[in-house]
């Protein structure tokens, strides 16, 4: 039976937001949002623990950000300003597609400027611009279980987390060092959260791992795998390592060829048929702001403003 504030799509739409009238605010029905919200709260209360949630089929495919989209939908208010990035860029096709989805179904303001966003949904990167207490970072997660590639069974990995039995992970990392002289993990590098749960930070490059201890709330959504987890602000997040082989958040040993930044994560781009390379910031907003501020890199085009 229908209740007030009930669940028929379209019955609960807000009048304030300019949304497509066929959808409830932020697409999901209220009951689904409540279920996701309860899972988010559990995730924040037990940092790094993967909370099972009854993920819904979304109008985009599993593996394309449905977990992040559901978390964002349950978190947005009509007054938010949303930024969506994929690979650090606002204009990658899937980022564009997800941003359009929320413009259409939630009517929220959108931005490409990290500093202006209140909610940022991301795939594979943490923005270079440090986030603040007033921001929320939502990660899209493909495989939330950091132990999955060591032990495929959920029934087993769940026990390992319960017993805090992470020996298998340490053995794997040490075998890497024994065989290769280094930990052969360059992204989705496992971390320990608040001294308890080993967590997959999603496939961000390990360069981003040190930023995981930040003032913003971080929420992780894995739709197909039906898991939500979280890291509250100012929570210790330690990348797993060994005393004699400390964690190394390395990146390409270059500066950005467009803005000259030497602290940002770089994409390598093949620029000619002869295999010529250049390195550019993966965070397009960061790079653009620096260039607007007059910074230049080794391969910057001749600049009218500078010449004038």
């Amino acid at each position: 039976m229908m209740r007030p504030g009930g669940d028929r799509v379209g019955d609960d739409r807000t009048e304030a937001a300019v949304t497509d009238p066929a959808y409830n605010f932020a697409y999901l029905d209220e009951q689904t949002k409540r279920m996701i919200r309860r899972a988010i709260l559990k995730g924040l209360a037990v940092p790094g623990y993967q909370v099972p949630f009854a993920s819904r089929e979304m109008p985009m495919p599993y593996g394309w950000g449905t977990g992040g989209v559901q978390v964002t939908a349950a978190t947005l208010t009509p007054d938010d300003t949303l930024k969506v990035i994929d690979q650090g860029a606002d204009d990658t096709t899937n980022a564009v597609s997800i941003r359009k989805f929320f413009q259409k179904t939630a009517g929220v303001a959108v931005t490409e400027r990290t500093a202006d966003a209140t909610v940022i949904q991301t795939r594979h990167r943490i923005p270079e611009h440090p986030l603040t207490e007033d921001q929320i970072l939502v990660y899209q997660v493909p495989i939330p279980e950091p132990l999955r590639f060591l032990e495929p069974r959920e029934t087993e990995t769940r026990k390992m987390h319960a017993l805090q039995d992470y020996g298998l992970m340490h053995v794997k990392l040490y075998e890497d060092i024994a065989q290769n002289g280094a930990i052969a993990k360059s992204y989705a590098y496992p971390v320990k959260v608040s001294g308890r749960y080993v967590m997959d930070p999603s496939p961000i490059p390990k360069f981003d791992n040190p930023k995981l201890d930040m003032p913003a709330i971080q929420l992780f959504g894995a739709g197909r795998e039906q898991r939500i987890y979280a890291v509250p602000p100012y929570t210790p997040v330690v990348s797993l390592d060994f005393e004699d082989f400390p964690f190394d958040p390395s990146k390409a040993d270059h500066a950005c060829d467009l803005c000259g930044a030497d602290t940002s994560y770089l994409d390598e781009v093949i620029v000619d048929d002869a295999g010529g390379r250049m390195f550019v910031c993966s965070d397009t907003d960061f790079c653009g702001e620096r260039r607007d501020a007059g910074h230049r890199g080794a391969m910057s085009p001749p600049d009218a403003a500078v010449q004038a």
Partner: peptide, 23 residues
């Protein structure tokens, strides 16, 4: 639906992770 979504998602850009593997 789960399987095809995850299978096909590897078409999405992964160049950030690939870059870290390259390095």
């Amino acid at each position: 639906i789960q399987a095809t979504g995850f299978l096909e998602h590897i078409k999405l850009p992964h160049y950030v992770d690939f870059q870290s593997e390259l390095e």
